[in-house]
Amino acid sequence: MQIRKRLKNINFDKKRLAFGPGITQQTLINIATVIIGSFIFAIGVNSFMIAGNLGEGGVTGLAIILYYAFDISPAVSNFVLNSILLVIGFKFLSRRAMYYTIVVVFLTSFFLWLTETWRIQTDEILINTVFGGALVGLGIGLIIRIGATTAGTTILARLVNKYMDVNVSYALMFFDMVVITIGLTVMTLEQVLLTVIALYIAMKVMDFIIEGMNPKKAITIISDHPDRLGKMINSEIRRGVTIMNGRGFYTQEDKDILYVIINKSQLTRLKRLIRRYDEKAFVVVHDVNSVLGNYFI
Rank of each mutant, 00 (worst) to 15 (best):
residue 86 L to A: 04
residue 2 Q to P: 00
residue 147 G to Q: 12
residue 179 V to A: 08
residue 137 G to E: 14
residue 214 N to H: 14
residue 230 G to E: 10
residue 193 L to S: 08
residue 225 H to V: 01
residue 110 F to Y: 14
residue 83 S to I: 12
residue 151 A to Q: 09
residue 237 I to L: 07
residue 230 G to F: 01
residue 184 L to H: 08
residue 70 F to R: 07
residue 127 I to Q: 02
residue 181 T to E: 09
residue 63 A to N: 05
residue 189 L to K: 11
residue 243 I to H: 13
residue 51 A to I: 02
residue 104 V to Q: 02
residue 217 K to M: 07
residue 279 E to A: 05
residue 155 I to H: 05
residue 127 I to V: 10
residue 163 Y to S: 06
residue 296 F to K: 01
residue 11 N to F: 06
residue 282 F to N: 08
residue 200 Y to H: 05
residue 124 E to Q: 01
residue 114 L to M: 08
residue 141 G to M: 08
residue 79 F to Q: 04
residue 283 V to H: 15
residue 57 G to C: 06
residue 144 I to D: 06
residue 49 M to K: 13
residue 21 P to T: 05
residue 115 T to M: 12
residue 235 S to G: 00
residue 192 V to W: 06
residue 284 V to Y: 10
residue 171 A to C: 02
residue 87 V to A: 10
residue 227 D to T: 06
residue 82 N to I: 09
residue 75 A to L: 04
residue 90 F to E: 10
residue 193 L to E: 09
residue 5 K to E: 14
residue 98 M to R: 13
residue 217 K to N: 04
residue 1 M to H: 04
residue 33 T to R: 07
residue 79 F to W: 10
residue 267 L to N: 11
residue 13 D to P: 00
residue 228 R to T: 10
residue 105 V to S: 01
residue 157 A to I: 01
residue 165 D to E: 10
residue 290 S to T: 11
residue 251 T to F: 13
residue 270 L to C: 11
residue 164 M to P: 00
residue 38 S to P: 04
residue 182 I to S: 09
residue 157 A to K: 08
residue 71 D to V: 00
